[in-house]
C-alpha cells in the first residue's frame, strides 16, 4: 500500500509545482512529474507479488502472471506524454522569443 501512497505523493508534488512555480520551464517539469507518477501507478496496478512475464506456458497455464494490459497502457501513455511535452516546450521556446523571459508574471496580455 505504501507504494501507491508514494505515487500519490509524487502526483501531488507535481501539482504543487504547477500551482506555485513562476518559471514556464519549471511548470513543464512539474507536469512531467505528475505524468510519471501516473505511469508508475498504472504499472503498479498490473503487478502481482512474485508474478512472472505473461508468456503462457502450455504445460502449466495457471501460473502467477503479471497483468500485461497496464503495461500496454503505460507505453501508449508515455508516447502521448512525449507529444504533449514536445508541444509544450515548443510553445515555451516561442514565448521566450517573443517576451524574452520565462517569468509567467511578465506574460499577461490576455485579461478579463
Amino acid at each position: 500500500m505504501i507504494v501507491y501512497c508514494l505515487c500519490f505523493v509524487l502526483f501531488l508534488t507535481g501539482l504543487y509545482g504547477v500551482l506555485t512555480r513562476r518559471n514556464l520551464v519549471k511548470i513543464a517539469i512539474s507536469l512531467s512529474l505528475m505524468e510519471c507518477s501516473l505511469f508508475l501507478f498504472l504499472a503498479l496496478i498490473g503487478y502481482t507479488e512474485g508474478g512472472i512475464a505473461p508468456i503462457v506456458d502450455p504445460a502449466d497455464p495457471v501460473k502467477n502472471y503479471v497483468d500485461p494490459l497496464p503495461q500496454a497502457l503505460v507505453l501508449t501513455a508515455i508516447v502521448i506524454g512525449l507529444a504533449t511535452t514536445a508541444m509544450l516546450m515548443a510553445v515555451i521556446i516561442r514565448l521566450y522569443r517573443k517576451y524574452g523571459t520565462f517569468d509567467i508574471r511578465e506574460i499577461k496580455e490576455l485579461r478579463g
Partner: peptide, 23 residues
C-alpha cells in the same frame, strides 16, 4: 502563444485526472 500555453497546462492537468480515473 499565451492562450495556447494556458490551454496546454490546464488541458494536461485534465488529461492526468482522466488517466488517474481510468487507472
Amino acid at each position: 502563444l499565451e492562450a495556447s500555453f494556458k490551454y496546454q497546462v490546464l488541458g494536461a492537468l485534465a488529461s492526468f485526472l482522466i488517466l488517474l480515473g481510468i487507472a
